[in-house]
Design a protein around this nucleic acid. Structure first.
Lengths: 150, 150
DNA sequence: GTCCATGCAAACTGTTTGCACGCGC
DNA sequence: GCGCGTGCAAACAGTTTGCATGGAC
């Protein structure tokens, strides 16, 4: 794999190593275009390496976040979801009926941030627009009994 | 207190009661214009009623959220912050240096949401723009050693 | 008097950490 | 072979819950 080489080098500059587990976590993240949480990530990784531990998944996520390869989002609930960093910024709508996540872009947000930094003299490092509600499908099903996954 | 009456009535319609503790939690929330977390809320409440328990604070927050009087935000960290619902929507900037929270408005967001609902046929129930970075003060102190509270 | 709300402690969830061993470089 | 990374289990933080008692209405 070509990317392995540059990945290894990036890790190396901070005295870190490219291990089977780190490669695996990144692979799983890249291949699933959903917003997995640590547990889901661990499950998928275990399918390929039954010995990988949840602790390693968490530790790897810290490293990948530091490298800027992965972003962490709190999509409303108490636990975090992870996705590989995209070139174009995008935001998340979470359906409170079925849990589906819809990504969307909104260029106006960048303008909001620009104005905010200028007015307050501050420096923005990350921004996220988090929307919740009912998706089209769940709206149709009405108030009575969406598929709460149960 | 005048508001007590309507509060009691609202609670009553869902078979609930207005207790000393519920009144107290709401009072503390209204009087502090900061973004308290459950623990901070509990501390302040204890100053007025040393017997109030953290569990009651949490249970009361659930009720107040259901009534629409209180909003819960995850300002980046792992735990939640709470504030009374404001008439004007507003969003939060959190300084990763000193932890300070700056509120700001951004009318463009409403437009984003309108477009999103229309295009996707979905219904928005809540939206939050969450920004992190360095506030003006912490920027001045430079990269080397902001006051990380320690 | 009824039934919801409270306090306490224990359970639970998501995440982090200490330690001895394993493996990348 | 040095030293970071791993697996495991225990620790931890934030939040929720079961149960017996207390208090609102």
């Amino acid at each position: 794999m070509v990317r392995d080489k540059s990945l290894r080098e990036t890790l190396h500059t901070s005295g870190r190593r490219l291990t089977r587990q780190r490669r695996l976590v990144l692979k799983v993240l890249e291949e699933s275009r959903e917003h997995l949480d640590a547990e889901g990530l661990h499950d998928r990784a275990k399918a390929l390496d039954p010995n990988i531990s949840l602790a390693t998944v968490y530790r790897t996520l810290v490293v990948l976040k530091e490298m800027g390869l992965v972003e962490e989002h709190r999509l409303g609930e108490g636990h975090a979801h992870f996705e590989t960093t995209q070139k174009t910024p995008h935001y998340h709508f979470t359906c409170s009926g079925c849990g589906r996540v819809i990504e969307f872009d909104a260029p106006q947000v960048v303008e909001v941030l620009r104005r905010l930094s200028k007015q307050q003299g501050l420096q923005v490092t990350s921004a996220h627009l988090l929307v919740t509600g009912l998706c089209a499908r769940c709206r149709e099903e009405g108030e009575t009994g969406p598929g709460w996954g149960q």
